[in-house]
Write a protein that binds this DNA or RNA. Structure first.
Ligand SMILES: [Zn+2]
Ligand SMILES: [Zn+2]
Ligand SMILES: [Zn+2]
Ligand SMILES: [Zn+2]
Lengths: 136, 136
DNA sequence: GCTTGACCCTGTAGTTGCTACAGGGTGCAT
DNA sequence: ATGCACCCTGTAGCAACTACAGGGTCAAGC
């Protein structure tokens, strides 16, 4: 499989595939006589793992650890659990933070009654946190 | 006011203040004989506006537009409203996306029963989106 | 046999919003 | 005069890509 096929098979940008190779997330594949990268099924499933994990929000370093783990099938899977649980907690924290932001923004947007910038409640609210009802 | 005082007054890193000046978000202040930046109240309130807007998640370019608007008090404030409303919608979209992610992650994490990596349901789920119940 | 177009290669620079130096100058107290 | 806190410029780093520039390869069609 050439890089374009792998790209289509996994929905990954070609430049991203080369990037993953450069940072050591994907192993360097064999090359054809013309120096083209030549991938097999193992590459495809490894890249799918990476993309799916990225889609779920894991960082590259987290994925690196998860790949190390799955490369070593006899190891205890506790670390995978820890990484995934920590990530879940981060997502929850991020949601909580965005919800506070959303409520504050909705309050701010709702105050605009039109008119000139000098009288705009939106601009006033952005200039002074004391108009806010939440910490953020 | 020297840059350190402005930094303390607004809770902004000194390097960040210089960065904002470099990208044209804050006007270059006067300098003392020793070439130190010297700020006044107008700078302080402009920087507060910037920081507060950043805390609310606006991008630098959005803040640039908002500042242009507030520099021109006779202009109609409709654009401020549009920027803030668009940003609110983005925050809502991001929350919705993270909620989907959180639910999927919670499902994945909940499936780990311990044991070796070869049998881990977390690693299995990360490798194959077909185990997922949502699009993400 | 020669061109056209799709594909591939390397290497580098750009994105966002900062943050962290390195290597130097200034100002005040002891 | 020497320490220390503070200031200056300029550059490089972070995450995770993305976008070229400038070149090579290969099969199809004329
Ligand atoms: Zn308004
Ligand atoms: Zn606020
Ligand atoms: Zn497990
Ligand atoms: Zn999935």
């Amino acid at each position: 499989m050439k890089i374009g096929e792998l790209s289509r098979a996994t929905g990954t940008n070609i430049e991203t595939i080369r990037y993953y190779e450069r940072i050591g997330l994907l192993p360097a594949p064999d090359r054809t006589a013309a120096n083209y990268r030549s991938y097999g099924d193992a590459h495809r499933s490894r890249l799918s793992f990476v993309r799916h994990s990225r889609d779920l929000g894991f960082t590259i370093e987290e994925i690196r650890s998860l790949l190390d783990l799955s490369d070593d099938p006899a190891r205890d899977c506790g670390e995978a659990d820890r990484i995934a649980t920590a990530h879940l907690e981060q997502v929850e924290a991020k949601i909580a933070q965005l919800v506070v932001l959303r409520d504050e923004l909705a309050r701010i947007v709702g105050r605009c009654r039109g008119g000139v910038a000098a009288d705009c409640r939106v601009i006033e609210a952005l200039g002074d946190h004391r108009h806010c009802e939440s910490q953020h």
